[in-house]
């Protein structure tokens, strides 16, 4: 969109319609841009997910009946999907956050470096999530 008519000068009286604050619809999609949005989305998901964590801890402190409720939920298909999603969101957000630390320290800004960091966070998050769940099932969490 931008720059299509850059050699065509608009008449002086016409209002120049340029985006005041270019947002995502203006730019060509890139990997780092998509993952920036995913970082935010996983952060928001984790925010909501703390309710589950708090519920679980309070139930453990409350007694067997309350804890059985939590276990019934986390053992159900929906519960397992939510906890699996939570695991991925946590692992992805952590690795993606480490990527941000690297950038904060002033490294990894070259095109190939930032792509590698971003792919690393994406693939690493999935690998860690699957690994955690394999270990969890191996030690009897699937009961």
């Amino acid at each position: 969109m931008l720059g299509r008519n850059k050699h065509q000068k608009p008449p002086m009286t016409a209002r120049i319609e340029r985006p005041l604050s270019p947002h995502i619809q203006t730019y060509r999609w890139t990997l780092t841009m998509a993952l920036s949005i995913v970082h935010r989305a996983t952060g928001i998901a984790l925010y909501a997910g703390t309710l589950l964590l708090a519920w679980w801890l309070i139930a453990a402190a409350s007694g067997p009946a309350a804890y059985a409720h939590v276990q019934a939920f986390t053992g159900s298909i929906i519960g397992r999907l939510i906890v699996f999603g939570y695991t991925w969101a946590l692992m992805h957000h952590m690795l993606s956050g480490i990527r941000h630390f690297v950038w904060d320290l002033g490294y990894g800004f070259k095109a190939n470096e930032r792509e590698a960091l971003t792919w690393g966070a994406l693939i690493g998050g999935i690998v860690l999530t699957v690994l955690i769940w394999i270990i969890a099932y191996a030690i009897g969490g699937g009961r």
Binding site: A61, G63, P64, Y67, G97, F101, A136, I139, G140, G141
Partner: peptide, 28 residues
């Protein structure tokens, strides 16, 4: 807080693993 949680992540995951399959008494 981000660095703190990154450092704490492995112990926290291990703790959650330790609790899997246990009843309330064991978890408590």
């Amino acid at each position: 807080t981000g660095v703190a949680m990154t450092l704490l992540m492995i112990p926290v995951v291990v703790i959650v693993m330790m609790l899997l399959g246990r009843n309330q008494a064991g978890a408590a």
